[in-house]
Amino acid sequence: MSIIYSFLFAGIICMIAEIILNFTKLTPGHVTSLFSVMGAVLSFLGIYKFFINKCNMGATVLISNFGNSLYESAFNGYLKSGIFGIFKGMFTNSSFVLSLTIILSFIFACFFKSKD
């Protein structure tokens, strides 16, 4: 059942992004920033947790999960070690994606050249 849910959720999010891209002058950079901020807002309202429970990978694979995990880990950092814990814990969950992207893309960029 969660497979169908994740198909619908990821599909609808991508469809909204495509509608924004087609009918306005915004670039993909605008849309991805907008969606990650939307993820943080949804997480603040407590909605994003519901989506992750319903369709686990379908919601975690999207860029809006980046904002969600930033918010969640910053709040957990606050609960753990006070007001400075916000800065300490902000990147705990999302550092996986960030460091992995940096390392892997650097390694591949060392081996390959652009064709143009």
Partner: peptide
């Protein structure tokens, strides 16, 4: 949707 469901 396909990407999400494949991951799931």
């Amino acid at each position: 949707g396909l990407l999400g469901s494949i991951c799931e």
